[in-house]
Design a protein around this nucleic acid. Structure first.
Lengths: 203, 203, 203, 203
DNA sequence: GATGAATGAGTCTTCATTCAT
DNA sequence: CATGAATGAAGACTCATTCAT
């Protein structure tokens, strides 16, 4: 099954993963049922298990399959442009992902809040490596006096949390703002742009 | 049962709520089982239901019982001292809560990530009211030029997210930092202090 | 406990039995709970079991305690007056019991419909003896030509069923008649009087 | 599931309903357990709930499914033949049903004795309508002097009670008569034939 | 590939009964 | 006498997974 052959197989696997994203991100792993996923996917429950060996396998496949694209914005952070612009641009890309891919964000949030039992190795392995690399880049900027001296790891954490907050805590944000559409994302973008620009620009 | 009379009742109700906090915060509502809670509380499962009518009742009692103290730091935010100091002080109090009360933070995180089915009214009612009140206070500071002009609602959201991140995503933070104790909380405090002080101090 | 001493004991035993009659007659043995009985009786559940060793004991006590008075009308049937008047009078006494003691009637109905697991010996013993005795009396009247020749056992069954019907199937009777009070009992009395008088009076 | 498609579904649904009739009629709704029904039906308990969503759904399906045929004898009562013969014939048809379908009779008896919580609408709706219609027919006969003047509603009640008594109170009837087979049904038929014929035939 | 049918292992909840005071 | 506290056993219902076709 590692390399699906037919078109129908690819289509169904895709439908399953999309349905699983929908259901897992909303109810968490334990709260989600195969019945729900099967119904959203438009397949029968046994047919689900024809494509994936178990509920957990679907979840793992989802997490690992999405992680790569989830980290793309961070990978794009490089030394080319102005450091402050680079970082602010990363913030805004992350916020845009929270707007367009909230299910993915909540999928990871659910998993991590509950102790990340299924992706601990990834966190301590590839993810840590990537973060350390980018933290070194940022530290270099700070040492060169091109940005204010701020702990780069915690800077990254703050960027993750402030942006993903609009996906993970969406229902709270909307409840407090009384928001009925996505207009508040523009306000959030303006706020975060100003917050990080002010904090990062060297004196 | 609203006002427990005997000592043994208070003791057991307390033990149940503490155990439930432990289990719910780690596994979410659906993922938690009464068996787990009973074991942690050191009681039998039917005895749990002697004190609370249902699993959901325990959860609701927990959420509503904790919400008040959870919001105390925000309530303390007032117009007495220097605005920047006031806000930074609020940030640090929140971070301290994330350090000392991570289970409470994760309890709310679990609930909200999954759509807050049980506390929506609280969010749209008392919580919104409190936030609006404090946002007005902050907006007044900005208009008076005593802090940089930043959207006060989104400022509060950013404070919540950056601080609670250290509780809710604790396992990820530790995985990336390789942290084995709580020392990184001090780094986080230093970082957030600097971040907000730089961003808020008027030019 | 066979001979209760104190007044409070007698009072509580009475309250329990009355409450049990209320609850058992409405929900059957299995459908009734000690909690319900305790609440109706105004006692705590363990206190119930101080007076009676078990739920079943309450039920048995109720059944055997009430059976005697339940059969009184039949015992009163004797050879003194006119046979037709005697029997019709018995019918009306039974109907009056259905009106005034519907709970007792339903208690027995519940028990017997479900196979009378707890009073089978009584049925086959004292009850059968009493019925056989009265059937012999009626048979004597028939042989003497003083009433029409009708099988006396089945005559008694018909009297039981037609009269107790107004207690046991009360909700159905009321639903069909649209009755809101007990006025239909008078119609029933008139009907049964006429039915049995016509059927029993010899040609 | 409203219209079972496959043969195996029809077979299993039928087996479940038959088993449920057996168990519910003997123990009432509360006293019956899914375990018992499953065992009688020869299925596993979860498999029961694959065919019906809940215990109550089985009960409701049973009641509503059987009511129609249960009322057939009354529907057949019409103005074609001699009124007394018509009514006596109805009595005997009902008695025959009590002999051949005692479980159905006890199912309804259990339900009605306990207040008919699940079929009250049917009683006050279609059942009342049917009874009112047939009562009008009988009243017409009485006015025309073709039968003795007896309240038609109560006449119908008496027919129901006297005949169903042999099903609902079967254990008591057998206990008193010492009956080991169904021979007493013939005596009952002779008795009821005579009772109603004498009572109904105009002077 | 697909699905109707089936089930073992839970999971919440109820309830008669017991214990300790 | 009385009751707060506790529990074992059972009962309805769920759900991931397997089987058979």
């Amino acid at each position: 099954m590692a390399e699906p052959r037919t078109r129908i197989q690819q289509k169904n696997r895709g439908a399953i993963l999309d349905a699983a994203l929908e259901v897992f991100s909303q109810h968490g792993f334990r709260g989600a049922t195969l019945d729900q996923i099967a119904e959203v996917a438009g397949l029968s429950k046994p047919n689900l298990l024809y494509y994936f060996p178990s509920k957990e396998a679907i979840h793992v496949e989802l997490l690992s399959g999405l992680l790569d694209s989830w980290l793309d914005p961070l990978r794009e952070l490089d030394g080319a442009g102005d450091p402050v612009d680079e970082i602010v641009s990363y913030v805004l890309r992350k916020l845009e992902m929270a707007r367009t891919l909230p299910r993915e964000s909540r999928l990871f949030a659910n998993e991590i809040v509950q102790g990340a039992p299924r992706i601990m190795e990834i966190i301590e392995g590839p993810l840590k490596a990537l973060v350390d690399e980018k933290a070194a880049l940022i530290a270099g900027w700070a040492e060169a006096g091109r940005i204010a001296p701020l702990d780069p790891h915690h800077l990254i954490f703050s960027i993750w949390s402030t942006t993903q907050h609009y996906a993970d805590f969406d229902v709270q944000v909307r409840g407090i703002l009384g928001a009925r559409d996505d207009a508040h994302f523009d306000d959030a973008a303006a706020f975060l742009d100003r917050l990080y620009r002010r904090a990062l620009t060297p004196d």
